[in-house]
Design a protein around this nucleic acid. Structure first.
Lengths: 227, 227
DNA sequence: TGGTAAGTATGAGAAATCTCACACTTGGAG
DNA sequence: CTCCAAGTGTGAGATTTCTCATACTTACCA
């Protein structure tokens, strides 16, 4: 995690993402530009994050740290979205981890400094409410729809979501758990993708996307709104 | 939908559910007690609800009205929970329907009268935020877990959730869609439940629960937190 | 340096679930 | 009253996915 001291870029991102509309006062001066490289942690395990993050570029994933020490893949994030809002709102919330899939750029506000101000800012709170309400509505619909699809389709979508520079290299065990299928079946379908030339296996852990169009075709039915 | 003029019951429900803690000022006097009978509509199709509801007793279900006129079962609600908060927050939100499964009791605040006040009440907004954030977190975990269970287990949980006085009578077509399985398979499992004596079929549309313990055993693995 | 846990890998048979085809019932709309 | 759409019901074969068993590899720790 690194602060980026590029005032011009910061201002442009703030304006591109209408960041100031989220608050009742101009937060530009208080906002920091932060980058996290692919694979880096944005929020670590049990550590309370120091910032409220607003993702403007990149992809990230959310883990849940279970009591037994295991971690479970929970959800994915793409811009624009908040991260760390749960910690801002609820000091007693459970620990979890947030990790960058691609290089990520954030507009970030130091929590300890501005927590009180943010929690008293009705415009900000309304935006968070709306964000959460919409996210919830979307997730419920997506979850309901997802059940109807075969692992072929869901895996294609998953690969495209988590791929980085054309390379897919998630842990099979975690993915199987996240997609709700057996490890065995995941490997079958992965092998089938290689067979059919959609992926090429490199070494033990990396798969290179060889036919992105086909993967997109497979996954397209999931993303599209029903007519 | 009926207003209930029972001041004593209202005060008791307000106190039992710590309703006043949700706001920065005492809303008791402004709160109405509203009941909706089983099967009745709490929020109808495209009609903007007149109240912000807080469910304190009963069960309800949420439908999504699609553009083609069809309706899709989306989610279920049990106390305590808000209903209509989306409409309060976002005047442009999509239409949907909320229907009572059992007789429901609500603490309700007229939206047109108190919308501005509520949207300026940081305590209330924080509670809504927290409610939404926790609901979201729970739903994501549940959805992820649900995939791992067989229709046997999910259907058992679903029957217990939607049952009313020991009778289950949801539309098969909707349930199949909601649970993400084919109509055919749903009927298979339902028939198996009857075979095994968990349910008894009455007429064409009603199933009576004949072995609640067994259904609870089947569904228990879903609800329990992982250790 | 060896042991152990976690991840990767594959086969074979079983269970869950789907698709398709077809028939019957029911409740409105005209 | 008739027709039609939607819901209900059932059979048979195909596909998806699971379970279990069994190896091999890798990382890490004592």
């Amino acid at each position: 995690m690194k602060k980026i001291l590029n005032e011009h870029l910061k201002q442009q991102l703030i304006s591109d993402n209408h960041f100031n509309d989220l608050f009742s006062t101009d937060m530009s001066a208080k906002t920091q530009l932060i980058s996290v490289p692919a694979g880096g942690y944005i929020i670590e395990n049990t550590k309370r994050p120091a910032y409220l993050f607003y993702l403007v570029r990149g992809k990230a994933k959310l883990y849940d740290a279970q009591s037994n020490g295991k971690t479970v893949l929970i959800d994915f994030f793409t811009p624009p979205c908040f991260m760390g809002e749960m910690e801002l709102l609820d000091p007693d919330s459970e620990p979890f981890s947030m990790q960058a899939i691609e290089d990520c750029l954030f507009l970030a506000l130091p929590i300890d400094q501005y927590q009180n101000q943010l929690l008293s800012d009705t415009i900000f709170l309304r935006h968070i409410c709306l964000y959460l309400a919409h996210k919830e509505a979307r997730d419920v619909r997506t979850a309901s729809k997802n059940q109807s699809f075969t692992l072929n389709q869901r895996l294609a979508a998953f690969i495209l979501l988590t791929e980085h520079n054309g390379t897919y290299n998630e842990r099979h065990t975690q993915v199987a758990q996240y997609l709700g299928v057996s490890y065995r079946h995941l490997l079958y379908v992965l092998a089938a993708f290689v067979d059919q030339g959609y992926l090429v296996k490199h070494g033990r852990h990396d798969y290179q996307i060889a036919n992105r169009e086909k993967l997109m075709a497979l996954s397209s039915e999931i993303r599209n709104e029903p007519k």
